[in-house]
């Protein structure tokens, strides 16, 4: 494991912790898209099915369990916890996220490295993860007041994607025959989706002003 990969994983972990902190401690999920959280729960559930079939390292297994557990508990919190649910921006969070699932599944059935059940689901999870942030970005744009924690959550998620790209560049040059177009292209698409957000985030940071995305 290289430093970019580790930094990427830690950034991902930090993003989840920030979100859990907001939900668990402040008992608020204002500005957080339940649609995006549901998509992430599906992403992890389909990608990490291999915890039953293959073992890489204790680190790998633990992190998978953390991401599975956190994504499902965030969804449950937002749906069923009374106080948290009340703060949910239901009227604003209207992205038709199920329409993302089917095209990703079809694409995974068409474009994959190996046609096996686990491999197709794994590929599906890559495609779905690439677009899963869209409902969250749309919600941010509609929310007038983005609080710091929600802004930091999206910033950390974007950072994690950027670091994974550096990790792939590093692995490409250090490991023989390390070429994975499916992962790279979907990872690149995913990172590009954050570009706009990053621009406004850095502006607000530079000018020491509250983050606000243009409508």
């Amino acid at each position: 494991m290289n430093i970019f990969r580790l930094a990427g994983d830690m950034t991902h972990l930090a993003s989840v912790l920030v979100l859990l902190l907001k939900i668990h401690t402040i008992k608020s999920c204002a500005g957080v898209s339940l649609k995006t959280q549901e998509l992430y729960a599906i992403v992890f559930a389909t990608r990490y099915l291999d915890i039953f079939t293959s073992f890489y390292s204790i680190y790998n297994t633990l992190m998978k369990l953390v991401f599975l557990g956190s994504s499902f508990s965030i969804v449950l919190y937002m749906k069923y916890h009374k106080t948290v649910h009340r703060s949910y921006d239901r009227e604003q969070d209207t992205f038709r996220h199920w329409f993302l699932v089917l095209p990703c599944l079809l694409l995974a059935l068409l474009i994959h490295e190996k046609f096996t059940f686990l491999e197709v689901l794994w590929t599906f999870s890559l495609y779905l993860e690439a677009v899963a942030i869209l409902p969250q970005l749309v919600l941010l744009q509609r929310t007038r007041n983005i609080d710091n924690l929600t802004g930091q959550y999206v910033f950390l998620l974007g950072g994690y994607r950027g670091l994974y790209i550096l990790n792939w560049i590093y692995r490409y040059f250090t490991e023989p025959h390390f070429v994975h177009w499916i992962t790279w292209i979907s990872g690149l698409v995913q990172t590009l989706l954050y570009a706009d957000f990053f621009f406004y985030y850095s502006q607000s940071w530079k000018n020491n002003k509250k983050l606000q995305l243009p409508a």
Binding site: R5, W122, F178, V179, H180
Partner: peptide, 10 residues
Amino acid sequence: PPQQRMHDEL
């Protein structure tokens, strides 16, 4: 195999 190496990522 090459695919396996990609699967060690999260």
